[in-house]
Each structure stands twice: as structure tokens, then as C-alpha cells.
């Protein structure tokens, strides 16, 4: 990251502030991201603060342009060139804002992983999926080829790919969209990171496949105690997976609370409007709707 702004807190003070820090995996405080544009700098994330505990899923929900993806890219140190970041992002008590490229590369994949909407653009089409998982493992944890191969087979098995031994030798295009997302999840979790950021991971999938992937993520999270940030535009998906919810609108954090609070007693008018506008599968249809 270039053009790093001032940090609100010293990384050392976080580690020193007591044992409760350790139960919190990710602490984001007053995060602001400013992007340079032809019309001058524009703040795309404004003063966002939230916490992710171990084994917890925090949902970030918002419409397009709300800044939800920029928030996740800022955490991962993947913002576009020239972006300015202020505030604080602490993972396991370590301040991430201000870390150099090399240090962030060590953290990405090992301590914090990310999966995206389109797995095909994140996988290398020229290498078998087995090799890609092996490389990911060895880059961070080392070990022999043989050991990495075993890990790759186990990783595919864990995400429910049938015949994992044989499938490690296949290329990304030989898998369906849902299977590719499973492979991305396998790769993201192969180094047992504490944090997984999932950015619209089920948006491009069919609804039945989406349900399977959501179940898989929830199961894996229970087993591995991974903290998860789940970014989506879909409130119903958030309702089924998140313990805490952050609602964003135009870069601002409009609402933050437990899922129960946000869905049953939203404080902000924007959240209420959003909740009212989604069509539901179970609603009583009101009089103004189509009648036969």
C-alpha cells in the first residue's frame, strides 16, 4: 500500500491493552479510505469501525457503491494504487495498516484469506487445482511436495469435492461454478488462517448451489473456528449466516449491531427501507400486488 495515512493507534498499545484483545480477532477502527479520482480525492469508506471475534461471522451489507468491497480490500492491503487509508486495522493485535508489501504478502493466505465472487478469475487456468493448492501451502508453511500433495487432497475432500485424489489433477475449467467456489474455499483455508473474508462468494451461483456453499462455509467455520467477514448485497443471505451485521451506504456505516438487532429493530431509516424493499418468498401478498 502506498500513501499510507497516519494511524490512530500505535500497534503496541493494542497488544498491551489487556487480555480481552485476544478474544477479538479483527478490530477495525475509524477506517477511512480515500481514492484519487480525476475530480480529486473521494472518500469511499468513511469512519468504519467493527470487530470480528474468533469463530464469528460479521456480515457487511450494502448496495453497489456502498464501500463494502473497499473495506475488505483495505483490510487485506489490496487497495488500488494511490489509495489513502487512515484509522486502524488490527489482526490478532497486529496493526496491518502501514505494513509493507512483503509483510502483507506473508499475512495474506496464512493469517487472512479472501474469496471472491468469480472463482474463475482468481484461479490460474494453466495449472491444475491440486498444484495451486500445494503452492499456496508451501509458500506459507513450507514442507515437501509429497506432504503438500496430501494436504491438497485433504483440502478438496474437506470442501466436498468427490474423488479428491483424482480431481487434484484437473484444471479449473473442468469444474462447475459451484465446485470452483469450493476449490477457492479449500485454497483459502489450506493454511488455517484466523480470518476469512468472503466478498459476494455466492452471488454468481444458482440458488441451490448458493445454499450448499453457505452450508459448507458455516460447517467449516464451526470446525476450524475461523473468523469470517461476509460481504454481500443480499440481506437474506446475511440473515442466515452472520452473528453481527454492518450496514453500509455511500461509504458510511449506517448501522452496526447483532443480526437480531439489525433485522428486528433497525435504527436507521436506510436499513428499514432496504428491509422493506426486498421481495420475500413467504410474505402475505398485499392488496396492491397482482391478483388473479
Amino acid at each position: 500500500m502506498r500513501g499510507q495515512g497516519p494511524m490512530s493507534e500505535d500497534p503496541m498499545s493494542a497488544a498491551a491493552s489487556g487480555p480481552d484483545v485476544t478474544s477479538e480477532l479483527l478490530v477495525v477502527e475509524n477506517l477511512t479510505v480515500t481514492l484519487p479520482t480525476t475530480r480529486g480525492p473521494v472518500a469511499v469508506v468513511k469512519d468504519v469501525s467493527f470487530t470480528v471475534g474468533r469463530n464469528e461471522t460479521v456480515g457487511i451489507v450494502g448496495e453497489s457503491g456502498s464501500g463494502k468491497s473497499m473495506t475488505s480490500l483495505a483490510i487485506m492491503g489490496l487497495l488500488p494504487r494511490g489509495a489513502l487509508t487512515t484509522g486502524s486495522v488490527r489482526l490478532d493485535g497486529v496493526e496491518l495498516l502501514g505494513l509493507g508489501d512483503r509483510e502483507m504478502r506473508r499475512i495474506r493466505g496464512a493469517q487472512a484469506s479472501m474469496i471472491f465472487q468469480d472463482p474463475l478469475s482468481s484461479l490460474n487456468p494453466y495449472y491444475t487445482v491440486g498444484l495451486q493448492i500445494e503452492e499456496m501451502y508451501r509458500a506459507h508453511l513450507g514442507g515437501s511436495r509429497k506432504e503438500a500433495r496430501k494436504v491438497a487432497v485433504e483440502a478438496l475432500e474437506r470442501v466436498g469435492i468427490p474423488e479428491p485424489e483424482r480431481r487434484t489433477g484437473h484444471y479449473p475449467h473442468q469444474f462447475s461454478g459451484g465446485q470452483r467456489q469450493r476449490i477457492m474455499i479449500a485454497m483459502a483455508l489450506v493454511c488455517s488462517p484466523g480470518l476469512l473474508i468472503a466478498d459476494e462468494p455466492t452471488t454468481a451461483l444458482d440458488v441451490t448451489v448458493q445454499a450448499q456453499i453457505l452450508r459448507l462455509l458455516a460447517d467449516l467455520q464451526r470446525q476450524t473456528r475461523t473468523g469470517m467477514v461476509f460481504i454481500t448485497h443480499d440481506l437474506a443471505v446475511i440473515s442466515s449466516i452472520a452473528t453481527r451485521v454492518l450496514v453500509m451506504c455511500r461509504g458510511e456505516q449506517v448501522e452496526y449491531g447483532t443480526a437480531e438487532q439489525v433485522f428486528s429493530a433497525p435504527e436507521h431509516a436506510y436499513t428499514r427501507r432496504l428491509l422493506e424493499s426486498i421481495p420475500r418468498i413467504t410474505d402475505d401478498l398485499s392488496a396492491d400486488e397482482v391478483v388473479l
Binding site: V207, Q210, A211, D234, L235, A236, A259, E260, I278, R280
Partner: peptide, 11 residues
């Protein structure tokens, strides 16, 4: 059955 739903009790 696969359609995600908002927790009906919260709704």
C-alpha cells in the same frame, strides 16, 4: 427450499 430467507421471527 434453497431461497435464503430473513429470519421470520426477526421480520
Amino acid at each position: 427450499a434453497a431461497v435464503p430467507r430473513i429470519n421470520p421471527e426477526w421480520d
